[in-house]
Deep mutational scan, measured.
Amino acid sequence: KCTICLSMLEDGEDVRRLPCMHLFHQLCVDQWLAMSKKCPICR
């Protein structure tokens, strides 16, 4: 589950894993990281 948009991560979707190993939709986390340089879970 992407904790930014709260939707399930589905096969075939573009996802991004951060160095902390948390996984998000690529678009969601890219937009998040443009505003904050910290993982939305770890922050």
Rank of each mutant, 00 (worst) to 15 (best):
L23M: 10
V15T: 11
Q31Y: 15
V29M: 10
F24H: 05
F24K: 03
S7Y: 10
M8C: 12
K1E: 09
P19W: 01
V15K: 09
K37H: 10
V29H: 10
F24S: 09
P19L: 02
P19N: 06
A34C: 05
L6V: 05
C5S: 01
L9R: 01
L33I: 07
K38L: 13
D11K: 06
M21I: 02
M35D: 13
R16D: 07
C28I: 01
T3L: 11
V29S: 09
M8S: 14
G12N: 12
D30M: 06
I4F: 12
L18G: 03
F24Y: 12
T3I: 11
W32G: 09
Q26H: 10
I41T: 13
S7Q: 09
K38S: 13
L27E: 14
P19V: 02
C20D: 02
L27S: 14
H25R: 01
P19T: 04
R17Y: 07
E13N: 14
C2H: 01
L33T: 10
R16E: 08
S36A: 12
S7I: 06
S7A: 14
D30Y: 04
R43H: 15
C20G: 01
P19Q: 06
K37S: 10
E13F: 01
T3A: 09
E10G: 11
R16V: 10
D30S: 09
C42S: 04
D14T: 10
L6S: 15
G12K: 08
W32D: 12
R43E: 15
V29Y: 07
E10L: 09
D11V: 07
D11C: 06
I41A: 13
H25Q: 00
C2V: 00
L9C: 06
L33C: 10
D30W: 04
C42E: 03
L9V: 12
M8T: 13
D30E: 13
R16I: 15
L6T: 10
M8L: 13
C2T: 01
H25M: 00
C20E: 01
W32S: 11
A34T: 07
R16S: 08
L9H: 04
I4W: 07
W32N: 12
L18A: 03
D11G: 09
C42H: 03
A34S: 08
D30P: 05
H22N: 03
M21Y: 07
I41M: 10
D30L: 05
C39K: 05
D14N: 13
L33R: 07
M8I: 11
M8P: 11
Q26E: 10
M21P: 04
R43T: 13
E13T: 11
M35V: 10
K37I: 05
C2E: 00
M8A: 14
C39Y: 02
C2Y: 01
C5P: 01
S36H: 11
K1C: 05
D14R: 11
D30N: 15
C39M: 04
P19R: 05
F24E: 04
C20M: 01
K38V: 13
M8Y: 12
H22A: 01
A34E: 09
E10F: 07
C5N: 02
L23A: 12
H22T: 01
I41E: 15
H22Q: 04
K38N: 10
C42N: 02
E13P: 03
Q31W: 03
M8G: 13
K38Y: 04
M21R: 13
H22D: 02
R16G: 14
A34M: 09
P40K: 01
L6K: 15
L9G: 01
S7E: 13
R16F: 08
D11F: 09
F24P: 02
V15L: 10
